[in-house]
């Protein structure tokens, strides 16, 4: 796909989501959309660590929860939302750096198990420390405004997309991918595996906290333990795999598929939703290990090949070839 086509598609997606927020007046649909955006942002953040740097963290919800907890607490305590978010992200960055030092000494499955243990420990501790529910004040609930929250969530997702795009094109991102492919080889070429993994860990944690901040801002009520639940980690992983691990579009498609699919199944085949969703998911993973993105690419290539075989397309092929050269 050419850079121009890609840009047009991104702008179209952005325009559609903005128009959705401005035109749709159905609270249920907006709620679903916000859930999609939050999960999308969380999945994008996990994708940086798991997809780009190849470190499969199973404790990602700890940072999502930290973002939600601090933001909600400060914001409901009367601080401006922006300040609350900035403090939440700063604390998360420090926490991730501190935790990252011992965790990133583990490799492969040991790193996954280590982060899972950390995530579960934080989850249980949060339940013990904050047993009471957190709800928005009654006045705020009655004047709850969906559209503003939708655009906040959209903005946060846009931030995660921009950071991911920057990483893909930057030296830092390439270093992360080199570490993902082969740590020793990366080290031999002057790329510090630990530094790159640590940066991926911290960036990923901060973006997860950002998604958590939106959750804390959006939710009418929840138990503070909830955003720390491992379920968030596994949902993010599911979304990334369904969409396409290591890609930018993948987590976005995955989150839309996951949230909308879950809602549709809940209201149409409630008794069968787990089975239907499970079979569908296994099929996607087995048939398209690269997720929907890989499926899309296959279809795109097939269509391109057929189109290219038609007479009169030589000029187009030449144009694509030129654009490809420019990109490289």
């Amino acid at each position: 796909m050419s850079r121009t086509t890609s840009l047009v598609l991104w702008l179209a997606a952005l325009g559609t989501t903005i128009a959705f927020g401005l035109l749709v007046d159905d609270d249920h649909l907006i709620t679903l959309a916000i859930q999609t955006l939050i999960l999308g942002a969380l999945a994008m953040s996990w994708n940086i660590l798991g997809g780009f740097a190849g470190q499969v963290s199973l404790g990602h919800a700890a940072f999502f929860g930290l973002g939600a907890l601090i933001t909600r607490d400060l914001w409901l305590g009367g601080r401006p939302l922006i300040l609350a978010v900035v403090i939440a992200l700063s604390v998360t960055a420090v926490a991730a750096a501190v935790v990252g030092v011992p965790m990133l000494r583990f490799r492969g499955i040991y790193f996954s198990v280590g982060t899972l243990a950390l995530g579960v420990a934080v989850w249980l501790t949060a339940g013990n420390l904050w047993p009471g529910i957190t709800s928005l004040p009654a006045e705020d609930l009655r004047s709850y405004e969906f559209t503003g929250r939708y655009f906040v969530a959209l903005g946060v997702l846009a931030v995660t997309v921009i950071v991911s795009m920057w990483l893909v094109r930057s030296k830092l991102g390439l270093g992360m991918m080199a570490v993902r492919e082969d740590e020793e080889a990366a080290g031999a070429t002057g790329v510090s595996p630990f530094t790159h993994k640590m940066l991926a860990f911290v960036i990923s944690a901060v973006l997860a906290a950002l998604a958590g901040s939106v959750f804390g801002y959006f939710s009418a009520s929840y138990y503070p333990q909830f955003p720390f639940s491992v379920v968030w980690t596994f949902e993010a992983i599911t979304v990334v795999f369904v969409g396409g691990v290591g890609t930018i579009v993948g987590p976005l498609i995955g989150s839309l598929f996951f949230v909308v699919g879950r809602d549709l199944l809940n209201s149409t085949f409630p008794e069968l939703q787990v089975v239907v969703f499970g079979v569908l998911f296994i099929l996607v993973v087995l048939v398209l290990p690269g997720g929907f993105v890989e499926g899309g690419q296959k279809i795109f290539r097939l269509v391109s090949r057929r189109t290219a075989n038609q007479p009169g397309k030589d000029a187009d092929r030449e144009s694509e070839h030129r654009e490809g050269k420019e990109r490289i």
Binding site: V231, F234, I237, T238, F241, V274, G278, F281
Partner: peptide, 19 residues
Amino acid sequence: TRKLWVLLAVIALIVAACS
């Protein structure tokens, strides 16, 4: 690696659905 991903993903789904 692919099998590990598949296994992990299936576990993820089950946990997410039946948490």
